[in-house]
Design a protein around this nucleic acid. Structure first.
Length: 425
RNA sequence: GUGAGCGUAGCUCAGUUGGUUAGAGCACCUGGUUGUGGCCCAGGUGGCCGGGGGUUCGAGUCCCCUCGCUCACCCCA
């Protein structure tokens, strides 16, 4: 093509004109809508952070940090980098803003450009865009399930079909060292068959071998020890609990013992969504727990998890299909539960309500009904759906109108229609 | 780049001529009610007083340096 001007965009970074930017806006609208229904508010963090932040969080021996960051000197001997991913900045912001002081469970989503110096190809650019969600402050397995639910609902509502969800556990500081050693011994045995990179990292970061794209290494990894076989009781029961919750939500998934993430901060549960798009770049979204990252970066010891979606890849997966418009928001609800059995029912209802356009929130601690009502009030919801052992055995739920204070009891299977009716009237 | 002002709890701020263990309101958590919000009551978590150095028996308080924020100037539009 003839170049009219003198300059062209930097490699791997392009422009969007209205025909295309409209589709971007549509994705962004869906992201805001879905995240909002789950109680996630938008966070905006800088595109530039101290290089050290990424080195510490993503890991020194990762592809991203080793060779893909856009790094440049700042004043003094400072080093800055364009963000290659979103989580580190969000955690940094949460600590700097001390959000945990006034919000024990912080939930945020972000949208924006990320930067990695890779060879561009279909679904991979140097400036690419992500929608991500992070929840910090709980180790409850429902948080993992909630994030996956959010992610899948977003993908579905944008119109993506044919995706698959894989989950796995990569262990924690309790069980990973032992596994690392096992894997290290195995890799030593098969050393001469490994690619150069894996051979070099065999001692510094052996888990990277599981993630290697080299076909030879993949085969070796498949034959070797898996993180799954070395999980501690906590990681193991966490994985089981998340699997159970996903099943309870009717979300289809498979366990993939070889799936790991390319970032070192992940612990315990990890997940990945692959799309129908194209060969090697088929990962549309990925995420998992990072229970140690907050502490690692100098914050309190608290559980956290998140995911991010590659929007370029999502658009590829949508293959030019029209993106549906975002519906008007339905009402705001809070689901209160008493006891673990009713929580499971409420968690399922929560997901169904969000799929019907409701903003639906709940508490993942084992807090008293009083505390839950107090939170519901603080959140300013229209109605609270209460379900405890009493309702559970009667097959009903209680719906409380927070303005009038009136409570009505309705049969379980009429909950959604009843809520739809009373909110719209 | 120059100058001024301000840095005390998550937030807004007290803190005496330098004097024991640094306070209040709001926010957050728990309880008062073995299952019910706002109001109220009781209790609780939370501070390297921005950081470093100095003066002093003793520094949140005085001095110096440094970092950060705000404003003005300069510059740019």
């Amino acid at each position: 093509m003839a170049r009219i001007g003198k300059y062209q965009a930097v490699k791997g970074m392009g422009d969007s004109f209205p025909e295309e930017s409209g589709r971007w806006r549509a994705l962004e609208n869906w992201a805001c809508s879905v995240a909002g229904r789950f109680g996630y508010g938008e966070i905006r963090t800088p595109l530039v952070e101290p290089t050290e932040l990424f080195v510490r969080s993503i890991g020194e021996e990762t592809d991203i940090v080793e060779k893909e960051m856009f790094t440049f000197p700042g004043s003094g001997n400072k080093s800055f980098s364009l963000r290659p991913e979103g989580t580190a900045g969000v955690v940094r912001a949460c600590l700097e803003g001390n959000v945990f002081a006034s919000n024990p469970l912080a939930r945020y989503f972000y949208l924006g450009p990320m930067f990695r110096r890779e060879r561009p190809q279909a679904g991979r650019r140097r400036q690419f865009h992500q929608f991500g969600a992070e929840a910090l402050g709980s180790r409850h397995p429902a948080l993992d399930a909630e994030l996956i639910d959010l992610l899948l609902l977003f993908l579905e509502e944008c119109g993506l079909t044919g995706w698959t969800l894989a989950v796995n556990s990569v262990g924690c500081p309790e069980c990973r060292p032992a596994y690392r050693e096992r894997l290290g011994r195995y890799l030593e045995e098969v050393e001469e068959k490994l690619c150069d990179n894996c051979r070099r990292r065999r001692e510094t970061n052996p888990l990277r071998a599981l993630d290697c794209k080299n076909p030879g290494c993949r085969k070796l990894a498949a034959a070797g020890p898996k993180p799954l076989d070395s999980l501690c009781p906590d990681c193991s029961s966490h994985l089981a609990a998340v699997r159970e919750l996903l099943t309870g939500l009717d979300l289809p998934f498979s366990l993939d013992p070889l799936m790991v993430r390319g970032l070192d901060y992940y612990t315990s549960l990890v997940f990945e969504v692959t799309g129908p798009a194209l060969g090697a770049q088929d990962a549309v979204a990925g995420g998992g727990r990072y229970d140690n990252l907050v502490g690692e970066l100098g914050g309190p010891d608290l559980g956290a998890a998140g995911f991010s979606v590659g929007l370029e890849r999502l658009l590829l997966g949508l293959a030019g299909k029209e993106i549906p418009p975002v519906p008007a928001p339905a009402g705001r609800l809070y689901l209160a539960a008493v006891g673990p059995e009713s929580f499971r029912s409420q968690f399922n209802l929560l997901s169904r309500l969000r799929r019907r356009g409701f903003t639906a929130l709940t508490d993942y601690g084992k807090r008293s009904l009083k505390a839950q009502m107090r939170e519901a009030n603080k959140l300013g919801v229209d109605r609270v759906v209460i379900r405890g052992p009493e309702e559970l055995s009667a097959g009903t739920v209680k719906i409380k109108d927070m303005e009038s204070g009136k409570e009505t009891t309705v049969p379980e299977n009429e909950t959604i229609t009843s809520l739809t009716r009373c909110i719209s009237s």
